[in-house]
Each structure stands twice: as structure tokens, then as C-alpha cells.
Design a protein around this nucleic acid. Structure first.
Length: 416
RNA sequence: GUGGAUGUAGCUCAGCCGGUAGAGCUCCGGAUUGUGGAUCCGGCGGUCGCGGGUUCAAGUCCCGUCAUCCACCCCA
């Protein structure tokens, strides 16, 4: 038996680094006044169809959709924003002080071919600020991610920035782009000719060199913003300059969801190979309304836990191996009850403690204490029971002393 | 969904021109009657991914299939 394709087990050895990433992220969210939210693993399929958009690959071919026994069409969530917005609308959060600032750690599901840094189930850390159109919030999002990567030590991080415009400037731009693409015609690759029909902006994703050079002359949305979008974009850039956050304006930056408006951004890590995008997001001023709420502007981001971990590992970053406080060696069957009592008492005092359950010899138990990275080994055997004093060994120095069994736990607790 | 590479012990791998499977690490034990991190010795551990085919004989050759990895598509 094996786990399903594209899934993985997080084994104990891999937990420390993941937990470090999560802890740092949670602290950043907390200090920026974001509150934790959890949403269900699955939602009505309709939520993603309306939210993410029917022209996106995710909706067209990557959703884990199924019918439940009640005949409802449900989908394991492929992204985190639409569910949070659904919760915002459902719980009437528009009545709370705005903006409502939320963060999440959730599993995402996409039916894709697995690859380095890409799984069918993965974790994303994300944040959403709903109820304000202020460019300062876009900058806050970008800077929270920047801070996360910096504190963790993610190497070679680059930021790309663009704008998707709004309902006023995007439609006329798309007409211009379509005209341009028709002018280029058959010279584009077959994929791009498909994209031109379905979602013209996607042609900028193409890696075909011929297409890239043909599109070099194409009009870019970021160069054709309406005055209000231009002002908003300039404000975001102003904040990034204020924070000395380097970035590159990239008119070819196209994100995978249809709901973006105005600001979009993406962080990449050059160490990661093909799947180098480690986090990204942007503004989605129409999504709340499209999902059925009172219109409310919003902005947010998502970042991939696995890709951050891969990037950290590529830089050789590994957290200190965990250890325990005390390992108690049982060297006589008659000592077992006293050992179990000591274990229970120590743990009650908040001291991590373990013992031998494998019937190992003295040497084997000492070895186990060493493997567990124990600070102290406590020996209880025939001699100790007879003398009424346990042997306490400092695993760092190798020094040993006798400690009365009567006050053993108290004595040990004073050492931490 | 497309292309390429790879599947042998828990892990990393060797296995020649086809002749009935090996090493290192880990684990357990011994050298050291009850003392770790070093060394030496021994032991446990394998449906050779799975299914067919060729052959007297297949880990080895052929076909299929599944899985993993890498790339495309796309994305975190």
C-alpha cells in the first residue's frame, strides 16, 4: 500500500522545520493584527466556479469535485481566498469594524501531475484583508510575506509586481490586446492561440521564445491603467519604496485566478527549479459581491508551506534536533513501578521524560538516552532500590551522582 | 493530459556476457555481569514495484501496467 499519488506523509524528522515556518508566520500575522480563521476542507463546487472563474485551469481541469450522498456537488478547496470570503459574507462580517483581517493555514487540493514542489495536497499559509480598498493594505500584504521570507532566511527571493486594472480599464485593454493578437495570428504557438481565445492575458505566461519576442511589443495592462487604478498602483509602489522593498514591475505577471483586480504580486525563489513561485496574491475588489455579499474591496495572499521548506533546505537551513529532559533507565523488573511513577510525576511537572519499553540491556538503554538527546539519564536498578538512591547522569559531561529516591522528581525539576 | 529518466533490505546503492541476491548506514546483541556519542565482531532484515512474454534458466532481455523523479501545461 502507498499513499495516494501526489500526497506525502510528514514524518517526525520533517516536522521541526515546518513548525518553525508556521510559528514565524503566526507571529507575523499576530503582530499585524490578523486573526486566525479555519474554513472547511470542502465547499460547494459553485463557490469556486464563481470565485476562481471558469476560464482558470483550476476550475476547468484541476478540481477534486465529488457528489455527496445528498446529491450535492462539493469540491476539496483548491485555494483559500474564496472560502474565507464566503465565511465573511455568511457571518455578516461586513458589520464588524473594517477591514476584517484574517489569516489561515489550510490544506489545498488540486488534481495536477506531481512534480518537484508540487503536490495534489499541499498546505498554504495565507492572509486576507476584506473591507478596504486602501493601497496601504496591499503594501501590508506584500511586506508581511517579505518579512516571513526574511526572518526564516529563504534565499534568493524576488518580487514581481503588476496591476490587473478594474472594470473600467480592463475591458478596453483586452480589446486592444485581442486586436494585437489577431494581428500576430498564426505566428504564435498553438497553446497561445488557444489562450488568445479563452483568456488572452494568459499568453504572457508562455515560455516559448518566439511567443515571448512577439509579445514584447504587445500592449501591457499595467501601461494602460485608468487614472484611479494608476493612482492606486503608484501608491503601492510608493509604500514599497518607503520600506525599501525591491521589486520589479512586470506587465507579463498573470495570476491563476480570474478574481484579481488592481494589485497583483508574486514572490519567486530562484533555488526551486520549475515550481519557483513560493507565494503571491493581490487585490480582489469584486469577489465579495460576486459571491453574494455587499460589495467590499479586499486584498490577500497565499504562500506554499512545502515550497518555503524546500527553499530553506536548499540553503542548508535545519533547525536544532529536538531533545528530551530525562531518560529513565530500568535495570531491574522490580524497579519498573518506581520508574513509571517518576515518569508520571516528571511529566506532570512539565519535564519531558521517557524510558525503555523494549527490554534493552543497560548499554542499549544508555544508547537510547543518547539517541533521544536526553539532558539526564536516571538509573534505577537493584542497587538503587537497595540503597534508596537513584543514579543521575549528566549526558553532556558524563558526571554521575546519587539522588535519594524520595526526592528524585523534586531534585530533577530544580535542574531545568 | 504530453515527454524523458528511474523502481533491488527501513535508508543510500552495487549486482558484468541471463546461471537462483550483496555492501554501507540504521536496528538488536557481543567484546565491556548495570553505563551513550569511538572501534571491532556477530545477528535480524528482500514477493528484486506489479503482471505477462522469451528462455533449460530472468534482478538482468521484451511488452504492458503502477509508482516516483524531472520537464511541459499550470500553479503554492
Amino acid at each position: 500500500m502507498q499513499g495516494p499519488k501526489g500526497t506525502y506523509d510528514v514524518l517526525p524528522a520533517a516536522q521541526a522545520l515546518r513548525e518553525q515556518v508556521i510559528d514565524v508566520a503566526a507571529a507575523i500575522f499576530r503582530t499585524a493584527a490578523y486573526e486566525h480563521i479555519n474554513t472547511p476542507a470542502f465547499e460547494d463546487t459553485e463557490l469556486f466556479v464563481r470565485g476562481v472563474g471558469t476560464s482558470s485551469d483550476i476550475v476547468r481541469k484541476e478540481m477534486y469535485s465529488f457528489e455527496d450522498k445528498g446529491g450535492r456537488s462539493l469540491t476539496l478547496k483548491p485555494e483559500g481566498t474564496a472560502p474565507v470570503v464566503r465565511a465573511y459574507v455568511q457571518h455578516g462580517m461586513h458589520k464588524l469594524p473594517q477591514p476584517v483581517k484574517l489569516w489561515y493555514l489550510e490544506r489545498m487540493y488540486r488534481f495536477e501531475r506531481p512534480q518537484a514542489g508540487r503536490y495534489r495536497e499541499h498546505y498554504q499559509l495565507g492572509a486576507e484583508a476584506i473591507g478596504s480598498g486602501d493601497a496601504a493594505l496591499d503594501a501590508e500584504m506584500i511586506m508581511m510575506l517579505s518579512q516571513l521570507y526574511e526572518v526564516l532566511g529563504v534565499p534568493d527571493v524576488e518580487l514581481r509586481l503588476s496591476s490587473m486594472g478594474d472594470r473600467e480599464c480592463r475591458p478596453p485593454y483586452l480589446e486592444r490586446l485581442k486586436l494585437y493578437l489577431e494581428g500576430v495570428g498564426d505566428a504564435l504557438c498553438r497553446d497561445c492561440q488557444e489562450r488568445a481565445k479563452l483568456n488572452p492575458l494568459r499568453v504572457f505566461d508562455c515560455k516559448n521564445e518566439n511567443c515571448i519576442s512577439l509579445l514584447g511589443e504587445a500592449p501591457k495592462l499595467v501601461d494602460n491603467l485608468c487614472p484611479s487604478c494608476q493612482k492606486h498602483f503608484d501608491e503601492v509602489r510608493g509604500y514599497l519604496d518607503l520600506f525599501r522593498r525591491s521589486y520589479r514591475v512586470d506587465g507579463t505577471l498573470v495570476r491563476g485566478f480570474d478574481y484579481y483586480t488592481r494589485t497583483t504580486f508574486e514572490y519567486e525563489c530562484a533555488r526551486l527549479g520549475a515550481q519557483k513561485g513560493i507565494g503571491g496574491g493581490g487585490r480582489y475588489d469584486n469577489l465579495v459581491e460576486e459571491i453574494g455579499g455587499q460589495p467590499a474591496p479586499a486584498t490577500g495572499f497565499g504562500t506554499g508551506l512545502e515550497r518555503i521548506v524546500l527553499a530553506l533546505e536548499s540553503a542548508g537551513i535545519t533547525p536544532a534536533p529536538p531533545g528530551i529532559d530525562v531518560f529513565i533507565m530500568v535495570l531491574a523488573e522490580e524497579a519498573r513501578p518506581r520508574v513509571m511513577q517518576a515518569l508520571h510525576r516528571l511529566r506532570g511537572l512539565g519535564i519531558s521524560a521517557d524510558t525503555d519499553y523494549a527490554g534493552r540491556k543497560a548499554k542499549g538503554q544508555m544508547k537510547q538516552a543518547n539517541r533521544l538527546n536526553a539532558r539526564f539519564a536516571v538509573i534505577i536498578g537493584e542497587d538503587e532500590l537497595a540503597s534508596g538512591a537513584a543514579t543521575v547522569r549528566d549526558m553532556g559531561s558524563g558526571e554521575q551522582e546519587s539522588v535519594a529516591l524520595d526526592g528524585l522528581e523534586q531534585n530533577l525539576s530544580e535542574r531545568f
